[in-house]
Write a protein that binds this DNA or RNA. Structure first.
Lengths: 240, 240
DNA sequence: CGGCAAACTTGACCCAGATCAAGGAATCGC
DNA sequence: GCGATTCCTTGATCTGGGTCAAGTTTGCCG
């Protein structure tokens, strides 16, 4: 991976400190992380990692949005993860990446060289515990997404996607002025995430607008006029 | 969960010892596991865990096949995981199950009470390391399945499923005499796993038979006559 | 500002796979 | 052995979302 190397900010002032992989670390452990971390930034559209490439770094997303994608031999692609600030990239114990990682917006990463990070991991229970939690949360999310991809209609997929944005926006800075939400992805990227085509995404968004459930300010930002109606469309059952 | 409690076998003689969550444990650690484990068995079709239920146990599959399933409010279901011998059920740190677990065949589990297991986990690096590996492997598998569910055709889905059976059968005892493979699931369950209907599954299996790629001995067992042709249909690119 | 490209919307048409329906074939209990 | 039930196959038809094809809007660069 090639990217601009930035000057670091202090971990104590880091906006993702409370949720990232380092959130449980304090004192000496944090000092070590502080020492081995390097900030890197990527422009929107830049590829952060290629599938199959050697993975020398693991990283946390500090700012921006990145996507994890898989591709079939004929070029069809499916997004298998959306990385928002505080999400973790990389997998200790594996030295190659299993998918492409692309910056969907301008992205800043907090990178750790893999080897030192792995060494630290084996002597820092706070770090490895948090990493297990993160991996298991991702697994839950992946399974929810399997239900969406395998069984939901286009309408339900879009509603679920926006519902998820609402849930994460509170924490992640996906908001615009006046409670408006920002779509972190283009229509094509949303389609890739939902297992649809960009035309279907566009039509379903238009339909939600026509029904008075959404109001668009511009192509990338909108207001949810009826969160309850939206939630009803997701198809999720009541249990959370 | 209600099930028959069986007499345990010794860990040293356990068929899944080399791959299960306990595979890295030796000596004293293994003795503790041996002491807190309880074998339970379930009949084909029995529900092992209900979604939302308190999860007092974690377990490894010793014999048989179980499924993880999610359901939408109107009853559509999607399988989100297939548990073969040595696979792990449960998530330390969570006290409720996120999905239904059902015995697809007669199943024997090696169960550990969750609390003692979690305690052991925090003092046994061999155990927690293996658990992280298992979680991350499952995450990889879930992401591969997202690609399948979101982008593959019915034909590619079936081919991928059988290709996966071939890969795991060597280890898992899914084989019948003369290199025949056993389908561990009914047509309906396969459909649930692949995001299809049972009719489509049946038609695609018939098509593979008609093309001379598969030969069926009976409904549940078959021989792959042309593994290469099958693999070509999966749509997976060359990189592994 | 104006010309162009990228991103999006909308319409017309089509097709893979769902749905609906009608048998077969294996398995179970008696 | 024989009904009955469950599981599977196959056919006919339908439809949601894909594909193809214009347009429209936005934003960018000279």
């Amino acid at each position: 991976m090639n990217a601009l190397v930035l000057s670091n900010i202090k971990c104590g002032e880091c906006p993702i400190r409370h949720r990232a992989v380092c959130s449980r670390c304090e004192g000496a452990d944090l000092d070590i992380l502080e020492k081995i971390k390097v900030y890197r930034s990527f422009k929107a559209g830049e590829q952060i990692l290629w599938r199959g490439e050697a993975m020398d770094f693991v990283a946390s997303v500090v700012h921006g949005v990145a996507t994890l994608g898989k591709t079939l031999e004929d070029g069809r692609t499916q997004m298998v993860g959306l990385l928002l600030p505080s999400d973790f990239i990389g997998r200790p114990g594996r030295d190659r990446v299993e998918f492409d990682v692309v910056a969907a917006s301008d992205v800043t990463l907090c990178c750790f060289e893999r080897k030192p990070f792995e060494n630290l991991l084996s002597v820092t229970p706070d770090l490895s515990k948090r990493l297990v939690e993160i991996a298991l949360d991702e697994l839950d999310a992946a399974r929810d997404w399997m239900l969406l991809l395998g069984r939901k209609t286009a309408r339900e997929k879009i509603a679920t996607f926006i519902d998820m944005l609402i849930r994460r926006s509170s924490v992640e800075g996906l908001t615009a002025p006046h409670d408006a939400l920002v779509l972190p992805l283009s229509r094509e990227e949303i389609a890739n995430y939902l297992g649809l085509t960009l035309e279907t995404v566009s039509r379903q968004l238009s339909a939600l607008k026509a029904q008075g459930i959404l109001r668009f300010n511009d192509r990338r930002s909108f207001t949810v006029l009826s969160p309850d109606a939206l939630h009803d469309i997701t198809g999720n059952d009541c249990l959370h």
